[in-house]
């Protein structure tokens, strides 16, 4: 591997507000780093520990969850559950000696295209400074 390190980040986006914001950013031709790869989920509460850990195991350098604003969840408590789960997974990451900052959760409304782009930039920068995830297996050496 040569050149500058470019992190890969999986963003789980709730199908309601955050996806709207992402779409809005796209239709307004706003720029956000290509490092962010979006997976739409029916509710951010439906993102399990397995999804986050598998993403990291499969080579993501960071994972972020984008849920609706607190109190605005279509399914009333999905985003609170997700927040709790993120805290739990952060603890697991600590035990695995992986930086907790690689995982974060944000709350967005449906109209925050600018904020979506800003957050995408921030997440990318944070993970970039952390460097590649220590889990990454260099296939060429096997």
């Amino acid at each position: 591997m040569k050149g500058k390190f470019e992190p890969l980040i999986i963003a789980f986006c709730c199908n309601y507000c955050p996806s709207c914001s992402a779409d809005l950013a796209e239709s307004a031709k706003l720029q956000y780093p290509p490092n962010i790869r979006i997976i739409k989920v029916p509710c951010i509460g439906a993102v399990g520990t397995i999804h986050i850990l598998k993403a990291l195991e499969n080579g993501a350098d960071g994972v972020c969850l984008m849920g609706c604003l607190e109190g605005n969840c279509e399914y009333s408590t999905g985003n609170f559950r997700a927040r709790k789960r993120v805290q739990y997974v952060k603890k697991l990451l600590g035990k695995l000696s992986i930086e907790k900052e690689r995982l974060e959760i944000y709350n967005l409304s449906a109209a925050e295209a600018h904020r979506f782009c800003k957050l995408a930039g921030e997440v990318t920068e944070t993970v970039r400074t952390l460097g590649p995830i220590p889990l990454k297996i260099d296939n060429s050496k096997i």
Binding site: M1, K2, G3, K4, E6, L8, I10, P34, R37, I39, V41, P42, A46, I50, H51, K54, A55, N58, G59, A60
Partner: peptide
């Protein structure tokens, strides 16, 4: 239905293709 683990994890893997322009 439409939110099973396998397709989501496959999507995840597919999205994690590295940046080709930085790989020599």
């Amino acid at each position: 239905e439409h939110f099973k683990n396998d397709p989501i994890l496959t999507e995840c893997e597919a999205l994690l293709e590295p940046f080709t322009e930085y790989v020599q």
